[in-house]
Amino acid sequence: MKYALLGDLHSSIEDTKAVLHHIHRCAPGADIIGLGDLYECTVGKRKAETMRNCPVEKAAIRSEAFDQLLTFPSVRGNQEERIMKVTGTNEFSKLPEKMIIDGAVLIHGHQWKWTADWLPLVPKIDPPLLFFGHSHEAALYRKKNRLPFEYGKPVVLKKKRYAINAGAVWGSREWVLYDAAARTVTFMKAD
């Protein structure tokens, strides 16, 4: 089974359209799954600590055009959680915190600590492959070390633990193709 994993869309219609078009062109038939932060919350972290009952249209960048692009399942990101917190709605509570697919865990990445220079302090999980987003930086990690990769070139994953950051749709137009049968991951970037 092949999976196209994308995250950190942050309500960007143009970037999301470009990535979805790239997925359909490069990996037709792949199951598309989101890694959270589909929407952009307009309320900052500090202000969100005290703000409540804010109208959704003021708390999030939303449009019907963007909503129509979201035809795939996704995990919940910190942006969705913040929107719910400041609005008092549970609109995104149906999005799971994590998903498990063919030997891999999908999660946004805001659930664990990060170093000052944005390196993830990834928890040990099962299954041993972890796909995430949050930092907006595509990366492949093994034992806390960042491994090299080239866009468009499959990386064969040994039967070890890996953490794979799919990068960001917003601003970078990145996504990851995971082939569970071949046990490969291919970092992709749309034009």
Rank of each mutant, 00 (worst) to 15 (best):
T87L: 01
L9M: 08
K153Q: 14
H134P: 05
R46T: 15
S74L: 10
L106E: 00
H10G: 01
H136V: 04
K143S: 15
R146H: 03
L5I: 10
L69F: 10
F66T: 02
V86A: 04
A59Y: 06
E80L: 06
T16S: 06
I101H: 10
H24I: 03
E49F: 14
P96D: 02
S11K: 02
A60R: 05
A163W: 00
Q111R: 11
C41G: 04
H22C: 08
T42R: 12
L6E: 00
H134A: 11
E14H: 02
E81W: 08
H24T: 09
L177G: 05
I125L: 15
N165G: 08
N145T: 11
C41W: 02
H136Y: 08
L9P: 00
E81N: 14
H136N: 11
H134S: 12
A30C: 10
N90E: 15
V43I: 15
D126A: 14
T71P: 07
M188Y: 04
S63H: 08
G7R: 04
E91M: 15
H134W: 06
L70D: 00
S172V: 07
N90W: 09
K94G: 13
R142Y: 07
G167I: 00
G77I: 04
T184F: 09
E49T: 14
A182L: 11
T16R: 01
M99G: 02
T184C: 10
G29R: 08
E49L: 15
D67G: 13
G171F: 02
K94L: 13
G44A: 12
W112K: 07
E80V: 03
A190H: 09
S12H: 09
F66I: 09
K124Q: 14
V105A: 05
D179P: 05
W112M: 00
P96C: 10
H21T: 12
K45V: 15
I101T: 03
N53Q: 12
L38M: 07
H21C: 09
K160I: 05
A60W: 05
S11E: 00
R82W: 03
A138L: 02
K45F: 14
S12M: 07
W170V: 03
V176W: 01
K144V: 04
C26D: 05
G103H: 01
W112H: 10
R82A: 03
A65N: 09
A163N: 01
T42F: 06
C41N: 09
D31V: 12
L35R: 03
A138C: 07
H10M: 03
C41T: 11
I101N: 02
P73H: 09
A139P: 08
A180Q: 10
T42M: 12
E81Y: 08
I107M: 07
A168N: 05
P73I: 12
L177W: 02
E91I: 12
T71K: 14
N165M: 06
K189W: 00
P154A: 13
E81H: 13
T87A: 01
L157I: 11
K17S: 06
F66W: 08
I23E: 00
F66Q: 01
L157D: 01
A190I: 06
H136K: 07
G103M: 00
L5H: 06
G88V: 07
I83G: 03
A190F: 09
S11T: 07
E40L: 15
I61F: 06
D191K: 15
E80A: 05
P96Q: 13
A104S: 08
L130F: 04
D126S: 14
F72Y: 12
K153W: 06
V122G: 03
L69H: 02
K98E: 09
S172E: 08
